[in-house]
Design a binder for these strands. Sequence first.
DNA 1: CGCTATCTTGAGTAGCGTCAAGTCATGTGG
DNA 2: CCACATGACTTGACGCTACTCAAGATAGCG
Lengths: 283, 283
Amino acid sequence: MHGGFHYQRATSANLDASQIRYKMNPIPDALPLISSVMSTVHPLRNVSVSQLRTACSSCSLHELCLPAGLEADEMEQLDRIVNRKRPVKRGEYLYRAGGALQSLYAVRTGFLKSCVLHDDGREQVAGFHMMGELLGMDAIGSGKHMCDAVALEDSDVCEIPFIELEQLSRDIPALQRHFHRMMSREIARDYGVMLLLGSMRAEERLAAFLLNLSQRFAARGYSATRFNLRMTREEIGSYLGLKLETISRAFSRFQTEGLITVQNKSIELKDPERLRALIGQGA
Amino acid sequence: MHGGFHYQRATSANLDASQIRYKMNPIPDALPLISSVMSTVHPLRNVSVSQLRTACSSCSLHELCLPAGLEADEMEQLDRIVNRKRPVKRGEYLYRAGGALQSLYAVRTGFLKSCVLHDDGREQVAGFHMMGELLGMDAIGSGKHMCDAVALEDSDVCEIPFIELEQLSRDIPALQRHFHRMMSREIARDYGVMLLLGSMRAEERLAAFLLNLSQRFAARGYSATRFNLRMTREEIGSYLGLKLETISRAFSRFQTEGLITVQNKSIELKDPERLRALIGQGA
DNA sequence: CGCTATCTTGAGTAGCGTCAAGTCATGTGG
DNA sequence: CCACATGACTTGACGCTACTCAAGATAGCG
């Protein structure tokens, strides 16, 4: 594992990009657990550029992503409009606030953040996005993106032209259904963030954040208790409405209390139950 | 204006319900300004129960609400599935967290709030809803409502069975389009709330809140500078992630600074520009 | 007319932010 | 492969904002 390697690194079926980017971390990324999601995976050595263009039907994310619930022939129709495998390098913008909506984007590999900007330069992280999640839905209302989307590590996304998606979802009820579900889940997620920002104290917020990440990794077949953060303390703080020093102090405190082990970007949840119980102390 | 009057009070074209509910307030609600939205209004004295059942096409909100952009015949189709005029009395729940999604609801008259609940009893107001706005979109993802919706004053809503809406929006592209827009706008609004909760200080939050209300009243043909609050200080505080005392102090401070006049629930914006400038001081 | 919910205001405090110094990772160029 | 530069993180001391607790005023309602 060394630099110069990373163009071959990522398949749609693994998250190991992060292991390469953070290759010096003493604790590697959680290894994928055996799960139904992983059943169609090609081993790393078999990956080639052509295989990176896999159709939705052979993408390991199709249960999580937009094609969930589609029949084979419907998935094929969706495949025809999806522009697969657009790479976004770490630090690159997928889109910027104010830019016209062209497509929605499904994360294939990697990790991104959305940032809302304020005139005075303040910036607020509105969300972190991992594989199978859909970005850009904030732009449908006005035709313009409300936020920046930035890759936190080298990532691949599928580009889904919005006009064509809307057209196709008229013909395929299951697609329409699932698209509505994904928009609605974004709204429900936002309500959760509001609850967090509006009524939790610093340590509760961080605990909720860690448990949320844990649950999302678990849903993708990775360890729920050991994972690597892809974002800085400052980005976590921005998302949680706190300063980076507060995040750092809370991590340290959790560690001395035996709730987690934290070493740089690597996290291990030692006692998820006590972490969960911690939420609700500040009522 | 006195009690016992209020069953005749509200047409789809006025917000005056609040003037009756808060009839003792020295400053009445802003009167509707002349605007395109008001062109089909019946004067109050002509209102009858049958007219309360008006179709979307004759509803003064159709430019703001779900039927925006539909042709006459399309609007007729939508009309057939909409269960018009379900009254919700002050304090009544339109739906509750955990309840199964049946319908979306469009506010016709009145004012409602959505509240997210936390296990430990904490409650966070996630939004306030006025005429032309759509509620319940958080429930599509899971099939269950994520929050309570409560009327803050006697209100009327149109009930739109979700399954039928989805069906119909396959046949009517303009309806599909607009429905997507409304969901997306909810997401964009949520991002704005996150920015507010995550990075503004108390007085900035309140200023942003007042300006937002102002803008929404203006979009409905009412005064942008004089209006009545329909919610308590505690509800404003909950929405803004602050305590009621903080809201009260900020109101007082704004008043002594000449930014607003506030008397109980009635608000006048004396200097919207300085109010706007105030946002961005705390960077 | 009195009861209750809502609001205002004050005094004291806790929690998180600010500022600052120093350590540790990452990755670059010699 | 090592030395150094840079960005990320940790920790401490201090300050300020908003919270808590409390008392009193006011409005709305029966």
